[in-house]
């Protein structure tokens, strides 16, 4: 059991981060904190993918010219490069998401004068009442 935990410790960190991130998104009333939670959540997925690509004793997947020092490139154990590439894309997407979210938070702050969800809900309720009475 302990062996299992130790040999898979990276996955447990992934799960931990994932849960923390998701919890913040759901429970936090502050919009910026929500975005931080979202980023954390996404980051945990990045770690998950990169962990997948790692092969024990594997080296960076850079192909050497064969015959350079007697080794053929087939003998060297490489880590899987594909997850890294995927995560590069996912990071870009994550940055874009965060940027858009922060931009929205700025606009929300400007028009609602708050970034706390309960204040905003209150303001929305008043708006609805006003549109009903008019």
């Amino acid at each position: 059991m302990t062996d299992f935990l130790l040999s898979h410790w990276n996955y447990f960190i992934v799960v931990l981060l994932m849960m923390i991130g998701l919890f913040i998104v759901i429970s936090s009333m502050n919009l910026v904190k929500k975005l931080i939670g979202l980023s954390l959540f996404q980051t945990s997925v990045f770690l998950f993918y990169i962990s997948l690509g790692k092969i024990n004793d594997g080296t960076a997947p850079i192909i050497m010219k064969s015959g350079h020092d007697g080794h053929s490139s087939h003998d060297i154990l490489y880590s899987n490069p594909l997850p890294h590439v995927l995560i590069l894309t996912a990071i870009v997407v994550g940055v874009a998401t965060t940027a858009l979210g922060l931009a929205l938070v700025l606009r929300i702050k400007a028009s609602f004068n708050s970034i706390e969800e309960d204040d905003i809900l209150q303001a929305k309720r008043e708006l609805r009442k006003r549109s009903k009475s008019s």
Partner: peptide, 15 residues
């Protein structure tokens, strides 16, 4: 209120 709707759309969509 469109801003709040968009923000929620973004967060839920991203999840």
């Amino acid at each position: 209120r469109a801003l709040v709707a968009a923000f929620n759309y973004l967060v839920i969509g991203a999840i």
